[in-house]
Design a protein around this nucleic acid. Structure first.
Ligand SMILES: [Mn+2]
Ligand SMILES: [Mn+2]
Ligand SMILES: [Mn+2]
Ligand SMILES: [Mn+2]
Lengths: 217, 217
DNA sequence: CATAATTTTTAGACAAATCTAAAAATATAT
DNA sequence: ATATATTTTTAGATTTGTCTAAAAATTATG
């Protein structure tokens, strides 16, 4: 399996909310920053190798084998992200691009040793779950911050958007995974939120609130 | 610079004893396990990019820019080898293949952080020097074990052959970097050596002796 | 439901890296 | 020095991944 095939499988996995839904050619093209015709070509190849099931004009979905492959790549990606943050002191907004390369390194023993070295982490620096060696994902009951009602609170457990600008924004405003956030008020006008975090009260936009995951047991 | 270009540059570097000598097309083909015609094609490309100087039928040598690139790849290769042995508990005969992949990961910050994480090592697990960020190699005065005279001794500081079978042989006979080896006797017949190591006296072949480096200040 | 807009696929081209087979240059040996 | 052997290059083909432009299928709209 080539570098490129792996990136396509992973894109299909993420777009199809973990494998099951059918994914459109154009959606893959946009995610991969490539052209729809290139996607069609690759899909045909992946279909021949039985990683995806494909009917012309009907989009693709991952097969069992494709989901397995995707989970293995996601596992590697997220373990490397943990390594970069925990061991090499990268910040969480710097790791994605490098993990994008490291996820393609081929060695079963390497990734298992890395897992052990990191203390078998369950989540990556963005709060996303790390699949186990056998492909099991820790399910968490998380919701978006702006789904909370006024006076409810939750623990920040992940981000939906993990782009560098968003992560930098969170750093700047002192919002980190594990922090307790309480919704003090909601503006009807634009959906922005008054929240309390680390004993400070700040105002955040609807867009921020819709990209932060919280858990409120 | 592509994965493949980097591997060619590195092969030329190693074959040309660190850059200066002209290297034959066939030698590169053999090292890379590829065909001479493929080498000619690649050499032409590297020549256009001015990483090598090339005159038809006369072999190639690295330019200044090519040597710089080679040192950067060798630095990455050897730092990753140290990581695998020191942090992930790999044995020295298992690391080469994986480092062969890891050396192509592109991120200046990654390799500098890794260097720091490892405590700025000067040598890799096989005793080979790690080029500094600026491309400086620690020069050591090492000689092959079978160049020693009877009753001379030296500290084992490296291997010439770093293939898994040879490294496994050394492990099996308890020979490791840093060990003191004394030559007790030499057989005229086949050049084999009686040596003393770790208070034990063993007999090793000429071939073993010609692949072990020692330093005897 | 017929037409327009959008999505998806096909056809054909290209760059990168490889190969085989044959030709050209260089090296070796009598 | 001439013939032979070896090395190196060229010519032409193949695979992988990509692209543009055009055709075909699907979806949306009036
Ligand atoms: Mn990737
Ligand atoms: Mn992540
Ligand atoms: Mn390599
Ligand atoms: Mn080494």
């Amino acid at each position: 399996m080539t570098h490129s095939e792996e990136d396509y499988i992973k894109a299909i996995y993420h777009l199809g909310t973990s494998g099951n839904e059918r994914v459109a050619t154009n959606a893959i093209a946009e995610q991969m920053e490539t052209k729809p015709s290139s996607v069609t070509d690759m899909i045909r190849k992946l279909s021949e190798k039985e990683y995806v099931s494909y009917k012309k004009y009907q989009g693709v979905s991952l097969t069992e084998s494709g989901i397995g492959k995707a989970l293995s790549i996601v596992r590697k990606h997220r373990l490397w992200e943990v390594f970069l943050v925990d061991k090499l002191d990268f910040s969480w907004d710097e790791v994605h691009e490098i993990a994008e390369q490291l996820e393609h390194i081929k060695s079963e023993k390497l990734i298992d040793s890395l897992d052990k070295h990191l203390g078998f982490p369950k989540f990556d620096p963005h709060g996303d779950p790390i699949p186990s060696k056998s492909g099991v994902l820790t399910k968490t009951t998380k919701m978006l911050l702006n789904e909370l009602k006024v006076n409810q609170s939750g623990i920040c457990v992940g981000v939906k958007d993990s782009s560098a600008p968003f992560l930098k924004f969170l750093d700047k405003h002192g919002i980190a995974l594990g922090d307790k956030i309480t919704v003090l008020d909601k503006e009807d006008f634009d959906g922005s939120l008054h929240i309390n975090i680390n004993d400070k009260s700040i105002l955040i936009s609807h867009q921020i609130g819709s990209n932060l995951y919280v858990r409120c047991d």
